[in-house]
């Protein structure tokens, strides 16, 4: 497993649109993918309900765990777009 801490630069945080893109990318990947807000409990990054319930706002730090650095790159890019 690989871990990445990312400061979310998306203007609206991980709200509806970025959350859908984030979960869409995570769901395509094999293995567990989790995301946590700061040092909070990780949730499945493959569940849009779970990700939206984290209530990640612009400027929050998230911690993503996944099996590959490539996926972490992709998820970090989504969290910082828009």
């Amino acid at each position: 497993m690989a871990e990445r801490r990312v400061k979310v630069e998306s203007e609206v945080g991980l709200h509806a649109r970025p959350a859908a893109l984030f979960v869409g990318a995570a769901a395509k990947a094999g293995g567990d993918v989790t995301v946590a807000k700061g040092d909070g409990s990780p949730v499945s990054a493959k569940s849009i309900l779970a990700v939206m319930s984290l209530d990640v706002r612009h400027g929050d730090e998230i911690v993503i765990n996944a099996e590959s650095e490539e996926l972490l790159d992709e998820l970090a890019a989504i969290a910082n777009a828009g």
Binding site: R17, A20, G24, I48
Partner: peptide, 11 residues
């Protein structure tokens, strides 16, 4: 008028 909704990516 938002592809993420229109394509069903949210659900």
């Amino acid at each position: 008028p938002d592809p993420v909704f229109a394509q069903g990516m949210v659900g």
